[in-house]
Amino acid sequence: MLGSLFYTLHVLGAVLWVGGMAFALLALRPALAPLEPPQRMLVHEGALKRFFLIVWHAMPILLLTGYALLFGWYGGFRGAGWHVHAMHLTALIMAGIFLALFTGPWKEFRAARAAGDLPKAATAMDRIRQLVGMNLVLGLLTVAVAAWGRFGG
């Protein structure tokens, strides 16, 4: 029963994080293109602020439930399949990228927006887009690995 709860929380955390990145890059960003830069930056700031709050909750839940499943279900790394090892690696890389994004370009973006420096804010936003794009690719790869490996592939 507890394993099912951990697995459900794990999957929901992944859906929120990976789905949120896909929405931000594939739907929100293109939809904002017609807006003037100041309005576009304002919407980006509001949306990313909310999304990053979700990631700050989803990321630890993913990591903690992943370790709980790893040690409670598989008995540790030795008992885990290749897909679990791959998910572990990509999860740590994704968490590192998010932390770098949050403490670097996101901080720079917010400071530039507050100072009214739109070119600097745009540069920081482009770096955020690149890092979110990297994490989206890693997240989709992780989902594919999880689905493939789950059935012994």
Score class of each variant (00 low, 15 high):
97 I>A: 15
90 T>G: 10
72 G>Y: 02
52 F>Y: 12
138 L>A: 12
142 T>L: 00
136 L>A: 03
74 Y>P: 03
117 D>P: 06
104 G>R: 02
51 F>W: 08
136 L>M: 09
82 W>V: 15
105 P>A: 12
68 A>K: 01
30 P>G: 04
142 T>C: 05
89 L>Y: 09
140 L>T: 09
92 L>A: 03
105 P>Q: 04
121 A>V: 00
128 I>G: 07
60 P>W: 00
102 F>N: 13
130 Q>K: 12
14 A>M: 11
70 L>F: 08
54 I>F: 00
72 G>P: 05
11 V>M: 12
151 F>G: 01
109 F>C: 06
45 E>W: 01
46 G>C: 06
65 T>V: 04
70 L>N: 09
116 G>K: 02
139 G>A: 07
47 A>F: 15
92 L>W: 09
68 A>L: 14
11 V>S: 05
61 I>H: 09
18 V>P: 04
94 M>F: 07
58 A>I: 06
133 G>H: 02
17 W>C: 10
12 L>K: 01
59 M>T: 15
119 P>H: 07
131 L>F: 05
113 R>C: 14
152 G>F: 05
112 A>Y: 08
122 A>D: 13
66 G>F: 01
21 M>Y: 02
139 G>F: 05
153 G>K: 00
122 A>F: 05
131 L>V: 07
84 V>G: 12
49 K>M: 00
148 W>G: 05
67 Y>M: 10
35 L>N: 11
81 G>H: 04
137 V>Y: 02
28 L>Q: 09
34 P>C: 09
